[in-house]
C-alpha cells in the first residue's frame, strides 16, 4: 500500500489532512515512538502527517498565568524554557526522559498520544492537573489529562483530532512540585515506578496535594486516598500516616512494585516539601 508523506505548514492544513485520511493517517511529531511502529509495520498508514513544521504548535507561552506548551514543542525546548523553570517537577520529569538526543526530538504531546503506561511526563502532567486541547477541523475541545488515557497505548483522542496544546494551570501560592522515578539505571531507562507530586503548604501544614503514580497501572493514576489522608495535616504527620497505606488506586501486577511504591511517594513528597521548607514562597 502506498504511503504519502505530508509536512503541513499550518494547523488548519494538518487538520484538513486528518479529516481526509482519518484512521488511515498517523501523526508524526518527534517520531521517537511512531517511526519504529511505522518501520516495523505495526501501523500501515496511507498518510504520514509530520507536524514539526507548524510554527503555531512550537510555542511555549503563558496565558492568564497558565503555562501553555504547544503540541509540537520538544522536551529539550521545555528543559530550556525560562517559563517552565518554576515547575520543578515538570523539569525533573522531562530531563530524565530517554537521552538528550531523544529529548531533542520527542514531545510531551507525542507521549500523551502514545499513552505508554510509564511515560514520565504524563505522570507529572497528571499531578499538575494539565488540560489537553484537542483540535479538529470541526473546532476544539479540552480534556483533563486524566480523561485522555483509555488503556496502555490507548487514548480517547479521535482519528481527526490533534493535540494542539497542553495547558498547565498556574501554581497557587506556596505550591511546590516534584518528580521521582525508580529505574534500574540512572540514564535512559523506563520507570518501574514513578511519582509526581504537587504540594501546597501553609507553614508545615499540607493544604492541598496531588499525587500521581506512573508505570503501575495501565495508565497514570492519582492516589486520591493518600491525598485525602494528607490534606489538613502537618506534612510530617501525614507522611508518617500514609507510609503504611498502599494506595488502593494502584493495581500493580508485579509484587516488587507493592514494596517500593510507598517509598517513592514519600521521597517525592519530601522533595517537594524541602523546597517549601527552604523558604520558597512560590512566585506564581
Amino acid at each position: 500500500m502506498k504511503t504519502e508523506f505530508f509536512k503541513p505548514a499550518t494547523l488548519s492544513e494538518a487538520l484538513a489532512l486528518l479529516d481526509k485520511y482519518q484512521e488511515k493517517a498517523v501523526i508524526v511529531n518527534g517520531g521517537t515512538d511512531i517511526v519504529i511502529k511505522i518501520t516495523q509495520r505495526e501501523v500501515n498508514p496511507e498518510a504520514i502527517i509530520y507536524i514539526q513544521g507548524i510554527a503555531e504548535l512550537k510555542e511555549i507561552k503563558e496565558v492568564n498565568g497558565d503555562l501553555v506548551l504547544g503540541g509540537a514543542v520538544t522536551y529539550t525546548e521545555v528543559e530550556n524554557s525560562s517559563l517552565c523553570k518554576k515547575y520543578d517537577g515538570l523539569i525533573q520529569a522531562v530531563s530524565e526522559i530517554g537521552s538528550p538526543p531523544i529529548r531533542n526530538m520527542a514531545t510531551p504531546a507525542g507521549n500523551i498520544a502514545n499513552a505508554a503506561p510509564a511515560a514520565d511526563c504524563n505522570v507529572m502532567l497528571l499531578a499538575l492537573k494539565a488540560e489537553v486541547v484537542l483540535a479538529s477541523s470541526g473546532g476544539e475541545r479540552s480534556a483533563n489529562i486524566q480523561d485522555i488515557f483509555a488503556g496502555p497505548f490507548k487514548t480517547v483522542i479521535k482519528p481527526n483530532e490533534l493535540i494542539k496544546e497542553i495547558r498547565i494551570p498556574q501554581l497557587t501560592a506556596n505550591t511546590h512540585t516534584s518528580f521521582i522515578k525508580m529505574t534500574r539505571r540512572k540514564a535512559q531507562d523506563i520507570a518501574r515506578v514513578s511519582v509526581g507530586v504537587s504540594l501546597t503548604t501553609e507553614g508545615s501544614v499540607c493544604r492541598d496535594i496531588k499525587i500521581a503514580l506512573g508505570a503501575i497501572n495501565k495508565f497514570p493514576v492519582r492516589a486520591y486516598t493518600l491525598e485525602e489522608a494528607m490534606i489538613g495535616k502537618e506534612v510530617e504527620r501525614g507522611v508518617a500516616e500514609i507510609k503504611e497505606i498502599f494506595p488502593p488506586e494502584a493495581t500493580p501486577r508485579k509484587s516488587y512494585k507493592r514494596l517500593v511504591t510507598n517509598v517513592i511517594i514519600e521521597r517525592a513528597i519530601r522533595k517537594a516539601y524541602r523546597k517549601a521548607a527552604a523558604g520558597g514562597e512560590h512566585v506564581g
Binding site: V28, G31, V35, I36, I38, Q52, P100, M105
Partner: peptide, 11 residues
C-alpha cells in the same frame, strides 16, 4: 544530536 534510526528521511 539526533537518532537517524528513528528518523524518517522525509523529516
Amino acid at each position: 544530536p539526533i537518532r537517524s534510526c528513528i528518523t524518517l528521511a522525509c523529516m
